[in-house]
């Protein structure tokens, strides 16, 4: 996390508006390898919209995105994936009627020489990656509808792991989970971090943020209030930033 290194991701002066509303209004952020940057703020602060921009789900009106120092164009989810960006969404973004393998490879299916879906190869790869993440995972052939919240989150995370994500966006990854499953996801985040993956973490849970993040970026009404080192602030200071947009003394 030294300043001399090239950041993994750099968002420069990103702007997104819906009609007359400036959902994201000139935000600049960086993310380094092996770092977790938490993105916090009230509802409508613009954090999800900003991340959608990076994920290709909603292109920015202006601004620049750099990956490893290179300017890149991200207009579709496919572009984002090509840059090693994977997203784990709050609402899980899984097709409930399709099994774990089908979801893991959704949009990137393995195919046989004749162009048919190679279900066996996909099932096998899914089993292997899920074994690493969640050894108790068994129901490979059932639609994900019948899985528990934690198991579904495993599928979503497995997708990121299998495709060797370099940059991970997690939108409320623990919102739908119970305590044990939350602990599991936290463990996973630590593991991914140690592998050098950079993670943007969107969260409402201030405890999650303080446990997992290295830096905290606070947004309010589409603008960045400040980015602070976790070690230099208290929870109360962060809450004050979220609620009133008040910068603490030590922030840049």
């Amino acid at each position: 996390m030294s300043d001399t290194k090239v950041p993994l991701v750099e968002l420069r002066d990103i702007r997104v508006s819906f009609g007359g509303l400036h959902a994201v209004d000139g935000v600049t952020l960086t993310l380094n390898p092996g770092e977790v940057v938490a993105l916090v703020g009230g509802n409508g602060a613009g954090k999800s919209t900003l991340m959608h921009t990076l994920a290709g789900a909603h292109p920015a009106d202006s601004g620049q995105i750099l990956v490893n120092g290179e300017p890149v164009t991200i207009a579709t989810p496919r572009d984002a994936r090509a840059q090693g960006i994977e997203v784990i969404y709050q609402k899980l973004a899984l097709a409930e009627n399709i099994d774990a393998a089908g979801n893991l490879f959704l949009g990137r299916e393995l195919r046989t020489r004749t162009g048919a879906l190679d279900d066996s190869a996909m099932a096998s790869a899914t089993r292997d990656v899920l074994k690493r993440l969640n050894p108790r995972f068994k129901n490979l052939n059932t639609p994900v509808k019948s899985l528990s919240g934690g198991q579904r989150q495993s599928v979503a995370i497995a997708r990121a792991v299998h495709f060797n994500a370099k940059i991970l966006i997690m939108d409320e990854p623990t919102a739908a989970l119970g305590p044990a499953e939350t602990a599991q996801v936290r463990e996973l985040i630590e593991q991914l971090k140690s592998e050098g993956i950079g993670i943007f973490l969107i969260s409402h849970d201030i405890h999650d943020v303080f446990d997992l993040a290295d830096r905290i970026s606070v947004m309010m009404q589409g603008r960045l209030v400040a980015t602070v080192e976790k070690s230099k602030v208290t929870k109360d200071e962060v809450l004050a930033m979220i609620i009133m947009g008040q910068r603490p003394g030590g922030a840049n």
Binding site: A55, P77, V87, L94, E96, N103, L106, G107, R108
Partner: peptide, 9 residues
């Protein structure tokens, strides 16, 4: 899940 399909590219 139309949203998931869209996000899946």
């Amino acid at each position: 899940n139309p949203e998931a399909a869209e996000l899946g590219g």
